[in-house]
Design a binder for these strands. Structure first.
Lengths: 335, 335
DNA sequence: TTGTAGGCGTTATCAA
DNA sequence: TTGATAACGCCTACAA
């Protein structure tokens, strides 16, 4: 690998000038810059990340913490964040915490402390107070996406809003018999998205003066299969709903398939609305409340860069939840 | 951040001893090791990645090159690779090449040459000869997953085998009217997986003495919607097949839904087999040829570590394609 | 078994 | 505008 000295020699200048010419920091004559550029190109020179990092204290690398990477929401957020970061020359190192506790502590205690990154994006990671303390001790910016962590700025959507929009859509269409497919609000629901969405379903119904009948709520784990099971229960109950709102698009897909199997016609006999804005929503003609995770990732990255980069200040109001939008398709219709 | 000197001082030894004690390389007395460990723990010391890397020339970090990250195969491979790498203390830095050419060259020419990683895993990236040259010039191991690149070792499944197994299964069940949903073998099909699978479909049919009727092949882009469209065409043709083999599970899912919509009963009137081993295959009761991408990622990582790590030699025969297995479910039945 | 010291490739400070 | 030079934090001969 060519190093700065090689370039300096080839260009007939000092290391210092090469460094200045390549980084853009410090004054360099046009002539010198030209020679350096040419030499660098010829030698295929790129400054060593570790040397530069050791010297400056900055690594031009962002760490992304996630519990898993093989689920829709996470890959979309990563995609958005990475896009924005790459645009500014930043690499992305992935820290997948996984489900196993020992692996997780190892990630937090060793991997993350090697100082390989300048900042962190934590995607729906329910960090413990200890972990937050540990992260802050690193003295590096941290931003959460998708779930509020105490002590960490978080950008996310408003889980109340998202359900309200979906519900309002159904109410506007004249629906009064509305079922709910939510997430189980157990220990895994560290961010209360499952419970918040359920509560909003209930309160919206109440405000509309519609009684919450028993058997109108079923719960899954946000996946297609679980939505399928939940919908089957709902639709085969003595008094099946004429509309369903699902807490995730994937559960809505499962519900759509369940309806088809049961011969329940959508949207004639049953309206379904999902929450997410999943790529497959169009295929299923699913009306959904789009939460645009790519945008969430991109925003998180932008905020972080804003903090890290020297002269930048596209100040972003962090306290505002990101917008969500209703995307109407043919899974919903007037009652 | 605590650095090696802080630990040395706290433990009452020299920097060198701390280094030896923490890394395990070189002789250290039990007593010293103990003191160092304690001091390190107390200070939360972890060796700086950039300093260590600058000094040793090794970064304990692997780069994963992928065209995209939001598709099933890629996330599964990444998951497998990352799991194995993390197990050995390695970080993973993600280089998403994306679709845009300028972004791609930037990744290849700048990002990748910063020397942040010790080796590369390229997941289904059709590297150009120039790019391969560039990668090799870095003098770092490269291994491909899922598509053979000239000049780069690749681990992958046998695309012929995978179709043959699926076809054989259908033939064993007595099927003679077998349709094919493949991928378009256009410019995107750099690895010829689409064309290889189609050719194998054709040759298997030929060998079984079954004529290839017109209208028995349709092509998509490996996604659910495209499989849905393809199956509709197949099933509404004048002479619809009694069995279908799809080049991906997602296309098979689309096909299953198409059949349902058309009132074609599976497996009574139509048998369907997919290729992939997708998580949702069980939900769809899809018989599929499992290509275990997680294992592919894990194997790639193992081979790389084998090469990088000093005293290791779980020699793996690279020339053998990874095994694939038929997983029988209820989407296929005797004719 | 331990410590000293040089070197890894950059950046940044300071003189010139 | 340029060039020496001292960090940056760690590892690793080498000597003790």
């Amino acid at each position: 690998m060519a190093s700065i000295g090689d370039v300096a020699r080839a260009a007939g200048v000092s290391n210092a000038t090469v460094s200045r010419a390549m980084s853009g920091r410090g004054a360099v004559s046009d002539d010198a810059r030209e020679k350096v550029r040419a030499a660098a190109r010829a030698l295929g020179y790129v400054a060593s990340a570790s040397a530069a990092s050791l010297s400056t204290g900055r690594s031009v690398n962002i760490g992304i913490l996630t519990p898993v990477i093989n689920r829709w929401f996470f890959t979309e957020v990563i995609r958005g964040a990475q896009e924005e970061l790459a645009h500014h020359g930043y690499d992305v190192t992935l820290y997948t915490l996984g489900t196993e506790m020992s692996q997780r502590t190892r990630m937090m205690d060793d991997f993350i402390r090697r100082g390989r990154v300048d900042a962190f994006i934590a995607i729906e990671v329910p960090l413990t107070p200890d972990e937050v303390r540990g992260l802050h001790a690193l003295n590096k910016p941290v931003i959460g996406v998708g779930g509020a962590i105490s002590g960490v700025r978080t950008i996310s959507i408003d889980d109340t809003e998202v359900v309200r929009i979906g519900m309002q859509h159904l109410l506007d269409l004249g629906h009064t018999s509305i079922g709910f497919i939510g997430g189980k609000d157990d220990d895994v629901d560290a961010f209360n998205v499952a419970s918040t969405r359920r509560k909003t379903y209930e309160s919206t119904l109440r405000q509309a003066g519609i009684p919450l009948l028993p058997g109108m709520m079923e719960f899954g784990d946000f996946t297609i299969p679980s939505g399928h099971v939940a919908a089957k229960k709902l639709l085969t109950s003595p008094n099946p709903p004429r509309a369903i709102i699902a807490a995730s698009d994937e559960m809505a897909f499962g519900a759509i398939m369940a309806a088809r199997e049961l011969g329940v016609s959508i949207p004639n006999e049953l309206s379904i609305v999902g929450i997410d804005g999943h790529d497959l929503a169009e295929f299923f003609s699913l009306t959904t409340v789009d939460q645009n995770p790519v945008q969430q990732g991109r925003t998180a990255a932008t905020i972080l860069l804003d903090e890290i980069l020297p002269h930048r200040s596209e100040t972003i109001d962090i306290n505002t939840a990101l917008p969500v939008t209703l995307v109407q398709r043919s899974s919903t219709a007037r009652r």
